[in-house]
Structure formats: structure tokens, C-alpha cells
């Protein structure tokens, strides 16, 4: 329409930041805080938002999404909490081992795929382990809005109960903690029973927990629209495979420890993305032809699309077989 249509950029807008604090919380989890490099306030965000942190790991670019857990009303800094994953692809290890106060990094503008339903009469938060992070921001926002909420937080042990003390101290009566090693479990059916009409439930944690909450709520007659979840799937390693990118006319190799999206980016081809976790739909790519099997790991495409091989989400999904051609 206007003279110079601008092409959409890959990923959200970027912000240059300086690491302002690195706070180890327990054996596995460390908090990182960022301030804007230019000294100004960071963009306002809504509770539930994440940012994608760009890591320069010996020439290799890693992009990992983390929920922003700091108070949305305080934009002097952002905080994320990173759980070390010794078996993972190295992003969390890089953060734990290499990132120091004063380092300069690049993060994206906040993107919210897990926002609060502000109409809700009451919010019920259910967290498992490091899934507590988005709720830290949500609780701050609910406290400010004066809304009703309660948190049910399941952790492995007292020692690994990230932010348990702080939460219990600040919000007695609203925070309920369950310790696995003491055989405590969230009594989900009881807690869903008797909630006022218009209550919304939010769950963030391991996949099993998310599925359990959805299934239990559904069985108790809760509408699907009142149950919200966020799960970032991490790209899993897999057998290397080869892909032809038709538009760019390139053949690329996807290594064992990189995602298809990362391999596309490494070859210099720009591809859209936001969450890099199979949830937002931005990187959806058409399949031109294939001979083999897809390993779909996203939460975006529907079952039909997964079955007929017409599309793939390159941020998390892989391929095993003879040949794959993509419209990219």
C-alpha cells in the first residue's frame, strides 16, 4: 500500500541489555537480572510474558525463551530464573557457567502467550518446579489489581523450593506448597470443587502436570476456556538430517544438537519466529515434499496437519527419512 512495504522481521524487536545481577537460589536455579544498556526503563510488559535471550556460545547463537518473573510495574529491570539442565542442549548450562554481572546481552521485547483473563472472578495458579516463574509476575500484578488468587506450588524438596520462602512469607494463606519428598500432592479435584463461577486456572510445569490439570478440570465440568497452560517445549536432540530449502535454493544439514530452525538460521536464511517453543505458530513452514517420517513436537499444528505432513514447526520438530523439501 505505501511506497516501501517493510518486511516482517524474524522474531520480536530486540533490546540491548546489561546483566545487573546473578543470584544463585539453590543447587539448580539461578536468577538473572537485566537492565537496559542505554540506562532507560525497559518496555512495560504484562504478567505471563516471556523474553528470548540470545547467547553467544563460542560463535554459536543460542536463543532460549524464559518467562519474565519480575514485577510488571517495575520496568527498571527484568528478571528471569533459569534451571540448569545438565542433559539439555546447553543453553541453561551456558547461562549458569558463562553469564556474569556486567555482561552485555541481547533479549527480545516481551511476548505474552500466557496472559491473565482479566474478567476472571478468581485466579488459581498451579505451578510445578521452575514453572513458578510466570506466576511470580502474575501474583505481583494481581496484588496490585486487588484481585482474588491462590497458588498451589509443587516442588521436589525444601532445598529445591525456588522462591517458596519469599512467597509463603509475603502471602500467607494464599500460597500452598507441596513437597514431593514428603509425599505431598496437590489435591486437584478438591481444589477445583467449589470455586466460584468465573474462576480461571493457570498451570505451568512439566507436560504430565499440564495434561493432568486439563483432564481433571474437564472431568469436573470446567469449560476448556477457563483452563490456561504454558509449556515451552525444548528442541530435543535427534539424528542429523538433510533438508532442501526451495525458495532459497539451498541444501542444509541439521545437526544432532541443533533444531531445524537453528540450522535454517545458520545457513543465512531468515525465518520468522517468536517463542522457539512450538507454541506461537510464527515459524510454521509449508512442506513441499517428503519421503520419511516427521517427529512433530509442537502445540500449534492440529492432528490432521501432523498426520498429512503438509506443515512443520522447525523450532521443535524434526524429520527422519530420505528427503524433505521446505517452502522457505
Amino acid at each position: 500500500m505505501s511506497a516501501a512495504p517493510q518486511k516482517a522481521k524474524a522474531g520480536a524487536e530486540k533490546i540491548d541489555v546489561t546483566v545487573s545481577a546473578v543470584v544463585p537460589l539453590n543447587e539448580l536455579v539461578t536468577r538473572f537480572e537485566f537492565k537496559a544498556k542505554d540506562g532507560r526503563d525497559l518496555p512495560t510488559f504484562s504478567a505471563g510474558a516471556h523474553t528470548v535471550v540470545q547467547m553467544n556460545d563460542q560463535g554459536r547463537t543460542r536463543l532460549n525463551p524464559y518467562s519474565i518473573m519480575s514485577d510488571p510495574a517495575d520496568t527498571s529491570h527484568y528478571a528471569i530464573s533459569v534451571r540448569r539442565d545438565d542433559e539439555g542442549r546447553g543453553g541453561s548450562l551456558f547461562m549458569h557457567r558463562n553469564v556474569k554481572v556486567g555482561d552485555e546481552m541481547t533479549i527480545t521485547f516481551p511476548v505474552n502467550l500466557f496472559s491473565l483473563d482479566l474478567r476472571a472472578r478468581k485466579q488459581v495458579f498451579i505451578a510445578g518446579g521452575i514453572g513458578i516463574t510466570p506466576f511470580m509476575a502474575m501474583i505481583a500484578q494481581m496484588e496490585r489489581l486487588g484481585g482474588q488468587w491462590e497458588l498451589h506450588y509443587s516442588v521436589r524438596t525444601e532445598a529445591l523450593g525456588t522462591y517458596v520462602q519469599e512467597l509463603s512469607y509475603k502471602h500467607p494463606g494464599k500460597v500452598h506448597v507441596y513437597y514431593d519428598d514428603q509425599s505431598q500432592a496437590i489435591a486437584l479435584e478438591d481444589l477445583l470443587d467449589g470455586q466460584p463461577l468465573g474462576t480461571n486456572v493457570y498451570v505451568c510445569g512439566p507436560k504430565g502436570m499440564i495434561d493432568w490439570v486439563h483432564a481433571t478440570a474437564s472431568a469436573a465440568g470446567w469449560p476448556d476456556a477457563n483452563v490456561h497452560s504454558e509449556e515451552f517445549t525444548k528442541p530435543q536432540p535427534g539424528k542429523p538430517f538433510q533438508v532442501r530449502l526451495c525458495k532459497s535454493d539451498k541444501v542444509i544439514d541439521v545437526g544432532e544438537h541443533e533444531s531445524l530452525l537453528e540450522a535454517i538460521e545458520r545457513s543465512g536464511v531468515e525465518a520468522p519466529f517468536l517463542c522457539r517453543g512450538g507454541a506461537c505458530g510464527q515459524c510454521e513452514t509449508d512442506v513441499v515434499s517428503f519421503d520419511g517420517d516427521f517427529i512433530h513436537r509442537d502445540h500449534w499444528l492440529d492432528d490432521d496437519q501432523h498426520a498429512n505432513g503438509s506443515k512443520i514447526m522447525p523450532c521443535v520438530s524434526r524429520f527422519v527419512g530420505k528427503s524433505l523439501e521446505l517452502d522457505r
Partner: peptide, 16 residues
């Protein structure tokens, strides 16, 4: 709709 749902902070869009 898909496009609008994905409009992000700091990246507004327009049309006529």
C-alpha cells in the same frame, strides 16, 4: 486473525 494475534509489542502494523 492469525496475523493480528501475533502482533507484538514494539512492532505495530497498518493497512488501508
Amino acid at each position: 486473525l492469525k496475523f493480528l494475534l501475533n502482533i507484538q509489542q514494539g512492532a505495530p502494523a497498518r493497512r488501508l
